[in-house]
Design a binder for these strands. Structure first.
Length: 488
RNA sequence: CGGGGUAUAGCGUAGUCCGGUUAACGCGCCUGCUUUGGGAGCAGGAGAUCGGGAGUUCAAAUCUCUCUACCCCGACCA
């Protein structure tokens, strides 16, 4: 009983920390704010990564790798950009250690660098310094490069997967001939993010544009997908930026057009991070632990053998072997738990780990040529005969995938409110949830609402309908309909 | 960066006020036997320079000073 989780409803943040730990996803690293992603958590990330990698490759993108280290001066090239990251950079100032008789190992002051090096908080600057070399004519465009990498943003308050000082992500950096092309790319990627989130993570999202005060430093427009977590707070799950010509101008990247004119290149950048793992946990988890969508679950089916002695173990093993291989051939990720723990212990353990289907196999089932399955998404017990397995398991996995999405979507929709009075706005934000309402489009009201309620504009959704609406706080005619929420 | 707190075995704690045997307990871990359809039982065992340093004392986990690290709460953030 000592292994139980804190109750989700009353103690959400403790629940989160405990489930990450007990499910074996991650651990704290020795430097504050760093995270060790353990094998089970990393497999989950890899499955997400592989799914997205396939998507971008099938849309003509290629992977490359750019350096971790950036000359300090690069960041300063783009004024907004440097301002956005100035407060959270790790900086390399020296290159050597030496032994000191009194203090032990110290930084060798002799090794101080002429120009300090910044550990990348994002790679626009290094990448555009290279694009300058690579681009001369329109024939060199477009460049559709992505990289899978780690980045560092020094953070005060951190939480595993959601906010750590170092995290893993992909960052796409594209260069185009025209503004339209860059805009198309920005939106194309946003759509891929929606597909990744909804079809693989089973996390429903709103797509929209960030307001000026929430957009990426250095971007013309930032588009995003926003999801609702189980505590009714918003999580930004991915961003896609139209960078205009800002970085091309900062790094002087020009090309010759077909009619022999010189023009600056148009750019985009876009990223999703290991934060997506956090989104999965916070969207689907319950009081028993994780609930993983089958498409990204490291283990889709866990077999719990039930046997009292050596003889029974042999019989059960044979029985499992008689069907296990054919399931694996179908591509089902199936695993068996032969540890010496009791069945009850294993049930709880694998529920904690969020495995979509549990299979119980004991003498009782063997006698009847039956199998017992238990669904993690709703706890339903299913009895079926052995020869049905190959047909049922794949479709059951799909059903669980859909069910998790449907549950999450219902939860989000039930907690999204169309609101027209500020009083109502305040009470909903206090209770938690998304508020859709009119906004007059000024930064002033946006900030005022943030100060008074802690809610921020998550996005201006694509399906907004501002006509006839009034600003929730100034009562002026609404310029946009927006989604407000407290955010991670 | 401001306010508050904590530091004792892998984890969670007791002991500290009022100094005095071999530093205790739960979980976990190791060995063996018995178990196994919702977190098994018994027996044995390993594991701690009590955060670091200095001081007071016959004697320090306990008192004093100091350093360090971490946690919680307020301003920034994928």
């Amino acid at each position: 009983m000592s292994n139980q989780l804190p109750e989700q409803k009353t103690n959400f943040s403790k629940w989160y920390t405990a489930v990450v730990n007990k499910a074996g996803l991650a651990d704290y690293g020795p430097v504050k704010g760093t995270m060790v992603i353990k094998p089970y958590g990393f497999q989950l990330w890899e499955n997400i990564k592989d799914a997205f990698d396939l998507m971008i490759k099938s849309t003509g993108h290629v992977n490359a790798y750019f350096p971790l280290f950036i000359p300090k001066s690069f960041l300063a090239r783009e004024a907004e950009h440097v301002e956005g990251f100035a407060k959270e950079c790790a900086i390399v100032t020296h290159t050597r250690l030496k032994n000191d008789k009194e203090k032990g190992v110290i930084v060798d002051p002799e090794s101080k660098l002429e120009e300090e090096i910044v550990v990348r908080p994002t790679s626009e600057t290094v990448i555009w310094s290279m694009y300058k070399k690579w681009v001369q004519s329109y024939r060199d465009l477009p460049i559709l490069i992505n990289q899978w990498a780690n980045v560092v943003r020094w953070e005060m308050r951190t939480r595993l997967f959601l906010r750590t000082s170092e995290f893993l992500w992909q960052e796409g950096h594209t260069a185009h001939e025209t503004q339209e092309e860059a805009q198309d790319e920005t939106l194309k990627i946003l759509e891929l993010y929606r597909q990744l989130s909804e079809n693989f993570l089973a996390v429903p999202v709103y797509q929209g544009v960030k307001t000026d005060s929430e957009k990426f430093a250095g971007a013309e427009k930032t588009y995003c997908i926003e999801a609702m977590m189980k505590d009714k707070r918003a999580l930004q799950a991915g961003t896609s930026h139209n960078l205009g010509q800002n970085f091309a101008k900062a790094f002087d990247v020009k090309f010759q057009t077909k009619d022999n004119k010189e023009e600056y290149v148009w750019a985009t950048s876009w990223g999703v991070s290991t934060r997506l793992v956090g989104a999965v946990i916070l969207t689907h988890g319950d009081d028993k632990g994780l609930r993983l969508p089958p498409k990204i679950a490291p283990v889709q089916v866990i077999i719990i053998p039930i046997a009292k002695n050596e003889d029974e173990i042999k019989i059960v093993k044979n029985y499992i072997n008689s069907f296990c291989k054919s399931l694996k051939e179908l591509g089902v990720r199936i695993d068996e738990d032969w540890t010496n723990n009791t069945p009850g212990y294993k049930f709880n353990e694998w529920e904690m780990k969020g495995v979509p289907i549990r299979m119980e196999v004991g003498l009782r089932d063997i006698k009847n040529e039956k199998i017992v399955l238990v669904r993690r998404d709703n706890g339903e017990k299913i009895f079926l005969s052995k020869n049905e397995l190959v047909n049922i398991i794949p479709s059951l996995l799909e059903e669980i995938q859909d069910s998790l999405f449907a549950q999450a979507k219902k939860f989000r929709d039930d907690n999204t409110y169309l609101v027209s009075s500020y009083n109502e706005f305040q009470s909903i934000i206090k209770e938690g949830g998304f508020v859709r309402c009119g906004w007059d489009g000024t930064t002033k009201t946006e900030i005022q609402i943030k100060n008074e309620t802690k809610a921020t504009i998550r996005c201006i959704p694509f399906d907004e309908n501002p006509i006839g609406k009034h600003c929730i706080i100034s009562d002026k005619p609404a310029k946009h309909e927006v989604i407000f929420a407290k955010a991670y």
